[in-house]
Design a protein around this nucleic acid. Structure first.
Lengths: 335, 335
DNA sequence: CCGTAACATGTTATCGGTACCAAACAGGCC
DNA sequence: GGCCTGTTTGGTACCGATAACATGTTACGG
């Protein structure tokens, strides 16, 4: 194979210095219009491809923003990623994606790996991290954004909402419509910390409102999805009739619960209410539509992008910013 | 902020040369056990973080595999990405992800951008690309994998299945169970080329079997999802009764169609059959379960990873490889 | 005690851009 | 013409790791 074409080659072909080529392919300001045009032309003819790695090395700016998501296979996180990606492409940043599988240990490993690429900022999902992760991150002078939560002790900037509070709204709504015997369907372990917060929010609000104790229905280890919701209900068998509302950690779980309830001949919402979380597409398309919490997944990504753009553009900051994008009750036909 | 810690700093602190530090943090073979241990220790104490950018630059190996997906917000592509990601993490490769939004022009732009990062291989979804993309790629001596399709004129290696053939199987099944008046629900434009192939496969097979002409029900521009399936049916109104089967480009669309049919009081599969494609979770959880085509999304990713590992390990290759992972009919309760 | 092999470590140059500073050049003004 | 200003271009060093080669060190048999 022929050796790679570098700026030097282009420079030689045009009869200028590599420095001029470098300028011509970037700032445009100082280089003479004709020279620049010629350089671009020749670069193209020679099949020159710019080497971002070399640039990143020399300038010590990688052009990367590192992102960790619990799972890529989740419509909401995917939307956030898209919002972030679209928002940042304007400033020429590329995303470096890692998936933590809902594990803070995996997150630590990932952060360690991502940091070796010299990202110019790092975006984490959630506010729970290992001590080691926190140490790694604070040792670098690097903008940090935590999203999808409102952590009590943030590492840097925050774009999110209160999962507990949103869930409390939902429980209040159920109580107001006369539901009293609530079951909560979510992951059995607590690796999904956002899920855990939602659960705590539901339990606390129910206690607050004087409802009977909420029974926890185990849907298996995180991440839980449609099939786990269905399984949790079928495992319950006829005991499901003891409840008049099933509060689910997410819409996919709620959909599984809903489907299984119908298979068992239950009337939703006549016999039992079902609620989800996240306003996934399935919630608004299913028959009946599922009552849920609307989170602005895409907006979270966009807000993070805006925040980072501000940081990159050098706008002076007065301390870490906290953006609460909120979450609202979306009434469906299952409650 | 203090300047970054480099190998030089570690070397000075330990009293060895930077070269020894470099070796100690990598191969382990030649460096004395005690020296290595000391170096690791000191590196850790100093908070040294390896600089992959510098390594990538010096060795001219980026450690990146570039991947383009039509959409990240699609459970199947997300699964493929996971399979690929998990499979490649063993060989220390990191994925550089780009989303084409089902557009070959966006793909070209993306490929151009990704190539500046010197990826060691590139994985594309689908077999349709602009001429410019093909030119860009063949100018580099770079392993190329196309997945999710069996292109007639592949750029390199292939891991996929025939979308048209799979759809033909589905239509044959419908015909065998007595369905004759078929409607096809998919994107109106042809930007989703895999979708277009599925459509062509369905139409061709129907014609082949002597069924009446299949009517195309427009679900809007790609990408189409649940809501578009539902809208297509509601737009049809009572005309939906003219069909005895609705073949959908994907499971999400089929689910939308199914929900809307039920809202309209139709009995599925009594009055009308509904089929999907992709074996998404919603197909197996919904009530009734949706008849679909099972594609091995995760396996595609895993197979690509295996293929690339082989290439990276230097195993001699005899020409580009083609892996047909196949696709099978998954009978549900909607047909 | 020496030669040689096996192991362990050091030296130098380099990957492809670009920051920084210097210099060449053109045009305008007195 | 001489001087100044502004525009355009060039020269040199360097970012942090490592390939390739050279050198030093130890172990051991004869």
């Amino acid at each position: 194979m022929t050796a790679r074409v570098t700026m030097r080659d282009v420079a030689r072909a045009v009869g200028v210095s590599p420095m001029t080529v470098s300028r011509a392919l970037r700032d445009d300001e100082t280089v003479n219009e004709k020279t620049r045009h010629k350089i671009r032309q020749v670069a193209n003819d020679l099949g020159y491809v710019y080497d971002t790695t070399a640039q990143a090395f020399r300038t010590q700016k990688s052009g990367f923003v590192a992102v960790t998501l619990p799972s890529i296979n989740n419509a909401n996180f995917a939307e956030t990623f898209r919002g972030l990606s679209d928002g940042l492409s304007a400033s020429g940043m590329q995303l470096l994606l890692g998936s933590t599988n809902y594990s803070v240990e995996k997150e630590e490993e990932l952060v360690r790996q991502l940091l070796t690429r010299n990202p110019e900022a790092i975006v984490l999902t959630g506010g729970h991290h290992t001590d080691e992760t926190r140490a790694l991150l604070s040792a670098r002078n690097l903008p940090i954004v935590e999203m999808w939560d409102l952590p009590a002790d943030p590492l840097g900037h925050v774009v999110g909402f209160s999962n507990a509070e949103a869930m409390a709204t939902l429980v209040a709504h159920l109580a107001a419509s006369g539901r009293r015997r609530l079951g909560y369907v979510g992951a059995s372990d607590l690796t999904d910390l956002r899920g855990a917060e939602r659960r705590d929010g539901a339990l606390a609000k129910a206690a607050d409102l004087g409802l009977p104790e909420v029974e926890i229905l185990d849907a298996g280890p995180a991440p839980v999805s449609m099939r786990h919701g269905a399984q949790a209900v079928s495992a319950l068998g006829s005991r499901v009739r003891e409840f008049d509302a099933l509060v689910c950690v997410s819409d996919p779980v709620a959909f599984g619960v809903l489907s299984e309830c119908r298979r068992m001949g239950l009337d939703v919402p006549g016999d039992i209410a079902v609620t989800g979380f996240g306003n996934f597409e399935v919630a608004s398309v299913s028959d009946p539509r599922i009552t849920t919490i609307g989170v602005t997944a895409r907006e979270i990504g966009e807000q993070v992008a805006l925040l980072l753009e501000d940081l990159f553009s050098g706008t002076p900051q007065d301390g870490p910013r906290v953006v609460d994008v909120g979450a609202r009750l979306v009434l469906g036909e299952t409650s």
